[in-house]
Write a protein that binds this DNA or RNA. Structure first.
Lengths: 158, 158
DNA sequence: AAAATATGTTTTGATTAGCGAATGAATTTT
DNA sequence: AAAATTCATTCGCTAATCAAAACATATTTT
């Protein structure tokens, strides 16, 4: 059995686990769960979006998106408005409070990672980027994909 | 804003997402969810374990471990037996069916990853291992602790 | 124009994970 | 023996998700 395969799998699981813990920290600190935060980020990045688009970008079903928007709306972080021309659509947009929340409580995963990543020497940054992309491609090769949406990269609105 | 930081974050999220999708595939194919499979793996690796140990190794509470064992037991994949000397403890052990299930339906994440990883040239394998470990360390640095249990590495018994 | 079809959102009904607190049973301490 | 401790389970609750059904509104056919 390839030793390095095991080692890398363990490292991968450790990353997944750290992510989970991060999510719990986030939940306790801000009252927002990861899916909720992701939706808020997506909405803020776009300015305004329909539930359908939110669902597509977040990679969940429309029903789930609606439920998440409900939570955010209840906390006053986003608003819902009926479309003008087409009244079937609903525009979800961030409120001031929602934008504040994003600034105040950025994804801990992102913050922790960013800080440390930027402290790495140049060659190591390059290595990490290359390796992560490689791993991502490898894993995506398995799941035929179906996640063209991804794009959570939007997270970096400035 | 460091461009590479963004790039690596996106790659990281892509990995997390691929993992989620893998979990869904697993669920549909085997009827087992990821947490359930992890428990089954942990139990099979140890031969037999108490719910308390399962909880520690899987990184969940005792109550959750009990619930997961319930599911596995209902499907006939593990058995429960009261301890001989100490009757407070319950030994959870895999059944033949449980072991079969592990052979037949190994974690898709692991399988996909392993196959491709092993196909990489030597230098690239080394790079990936180094980078994943680095990232894991970086993320764990954030959650200062609270996860002394971690050790999900147990999953890799041979 | 009326009917049929399509589209977008929400509701409803289930399942699963997970936590914390409470309970019950058995063992160890005092 | 009584008290404290240790394990496992049960209970009550929250959250995420999905599929299917229900609604509301547009668009296209007839």
């Amino acid at each position: 059995m390839e030793n390095r395969t095991q080692t890398s799998l363990i490292a991968l699981r450790r990353i997944l686990r750290a992510t989970e813990l991060n999510a719990r920290t986030l939940a306790r600190a801000t009252g927002l769960t990861t899916p909720q935060l992701i939706v808020l980020e997506i909405v803020a990045a776009a300015g305004r979006l329909t539930p359908k688009d939110i669902a597509a970008r977040a990679g969940v079903g429309q029903a789930t998106a609606t439920a998440l928007v409900d939570k955010l709306e209840a906390r006053g972080l986003v608003t819902r408005t009926r479309g003008e021309q087409d009244r079937r659509v609903v525009w979800v947009a961030p409120t001031e409070a929602g934008l504040e929340m994003l600034k105040a409580a950025p994804d801990p995963l992102q913050r922790t990672f960013s800080e440390q990543f930027e402290a790495l020497p140049d060659w190591e940054q390059a290595m990490v980027v290359a390796a992560l992309e490689k791993v991502g491609a490898m894993l995506n090769a398995g799941t035929i994909d179906a996640s063209p949406l991804l794009d959570v990269g939007a997270v970096d609105r400035k």
